[in-house]
Write a protein that binds this DNA or RNA. Structure first.
Length: 423
DNA sequence: TCTGGGGTCCTAGGACCC
DNA sequence: TCTGGGGTCCTAGGACCC
């Protein structure tokens, strides 16, 4: 029909909430919400949406407007299983699959009967996963994205190039994938409000106003493939970040430091899970008024041990921490990551860098955590953060969860042992 | 959208060199 | 030491995504 190769965009409808319903079919037809651990709505079923519940809404507000709402904590392990099943089903139809995110993928469809293939994929996904998907089929990723958003939930929209103007005319520029608030404002200021108006501008106009990514979007709106599918989904990270907001904000350096320390521990857990080591760290403190105090630290050698990172951080922390300022969050981003399983470089003195012993300690700590729950063992410097009960967690005053120390995040009772050390 | 958390890519401009 | 021209590399920050 219209393309020799079409691109399919598949998007799980209310994915997290749908996974919960698929996991527990008795929830079907009910207003189900995920995000309990954060205290705000993360995902919701269409039944919940119909009651006026919105993403980001505070849970107390949810209970007020919808007392029968079922509010569940996020269960990423389950979502990830459904995600993998989704990819696997799509791969029965084509090898050209890009795993774009936990609830979305792109697929390349060869041949003339794209619509039939898309229909069949959709039916199979729904039958085998017990949830609906919205699908767009067109010549480029940007157009396929417009297609999958066109009818939600449970939609299938094929955008042939000759019909594209009909769809683009009804799409405001800010709804185009890759065009955010800043660029929308810029385009609007030049009188461009719809995707159609944008697509009709000439090459010189677009290049004169916008940077490369937007020139590419403009081409894709016109049916020219610029973004090929990234099928070789060897997932790895260029950076790993952990950040956490706490309430109420604090001006106590020891408490703020413990929050940072906990974030460092969490970032390092993820680092080790992916067999990575960091050469560089970026820390920040977010003030009550949303200003950032930050520092960049280069690590003496690649590491995934929180002590080593913390000992580097502890020198910068007093410099960026300002007395009397209240902070609401801390964060760390680890960058310049290398594969820890690669052979080690010798240093100038032809010795392996220190840190190999500490590695053994962390293998044991990770083993303990997998047996007894996350943070079964943790650094002393994280102690007050581990103890801290965060009201935003959405647990009531009579919370069953008193502290992380005596009750694991799994809910099992246990005794955590703070690991005593230098930091 | 009264602002949570985790990522990636691009570019302007500074530092530095010849 | 008021002063041309050209190139590369790196970093900070902007913008965007889910």
């Amino acid at each position: 029909m219209m393309f020799e190769r079409a691109i399919l965009h598949i998007d799980g409808d209310s994915f997290f909430a749908s996974c919960e319903v698929a996991k527990n079919p008795s929830l079907k037809g009910k207003p189900v919400i995920t995000g309990r651990e954060r205290g705000i709505v993360s995902a919701m079923t269409y039944e919940a949406k119909a009651k006026g519940i919105k993403r980001g809404m505070i849970l107390s507000e949810v209970r007020r407007i919808c007392p029968d709402a079922i509010i569940l904590p996020s269960d990423y392990e389950t979502y990830s299983i459904f995600s993998k099943r989704m990819y696997a089903i799509v791969r029965r139809y084509t090898d050209i699959v890009e795993e774009y995110s936990i609830d979305e993928c792109f697929a390349g469809i060869e041949g003339p009967n794209g619509r039939e293939v898309a229909t069949s994929i959709k039916q199979t996904l729904e039958r085998e996963l017990g949830m609906t998907f919205s699908i767009g089929l067109s010549a480029t990723k940007v157009l396929a994205k417009i297609g999958s958003k066109w009818k939600k939930p449970d939609g299938l929209t094929v955008i042939a190039l000759k019909d594209a103007p009909l769809y683009l005319d009804k799409t405001p520029v800010e709804k185009i994938w890759g065009i955010g608030p800043a660029t929308s404002l810029l385009l609007n200021s030049r009188g461009v409000r719809t995707a159609l108006e944008f697509s009709l501008k000439n090459d010189a106009w677009v290049r004169g106003l916008l940077a490369k990514p937007y020139v590419e979007i403009w081409k894709e709106l016109n049916g020219e493939v610029v973004n090929e599918l990234d099928v070789d989904g060897r997932q790895t990270y260029k950076s790993i970040a952990k950040t956490k907001t706490f309430t109420p904000p604090s001006h106590d350096p020891a408490f703020v430091y413990s929050q940072l320390s906990k974030n460092v521990e969490n970032a390092c857990i993820k680092l080790r899970r992916w067999h990575l080591e960091a050469r560089e760290a970026h820390i920040f403190l977010k003030t009550q008024s949303f200003a950032y105090h930050d520092a960049k630290i280069s690590l003496p050698h690649p590491t995934s041990a929180p002590q080593e990172i913390l000992s580097a951080i502890s020198k910068s922390f007093p410099r960026i921490f300002q007395r009397g300022v209240r902070y609401r969050a801390t964060g760390i981003s680890l960058m310049n990551l290398i594969d820890s399983q690669l052979p080690k470089q010798l240093n100038l003195f032809n010795e392996y860098s220190s840190g190999d012993d500490i590695k053994a300690v962390y293998e044991s700590m990770d083993a303990l955590s997998s047996r007894y729950g996350k943070h079964a063992v943790f650094l002393c410097s994280s102690f007050s953060a581990m103890n801290h009960k965060n009201p935003q967690d959405g647990y009531g005053a009579t919370s069953e969860r008193t502290t992380n120390i005596f009750k694991g995040e799994s809910g099992r009772k246990r005794l955590g042992i703070p690991m005593l050390g230098e930091v």
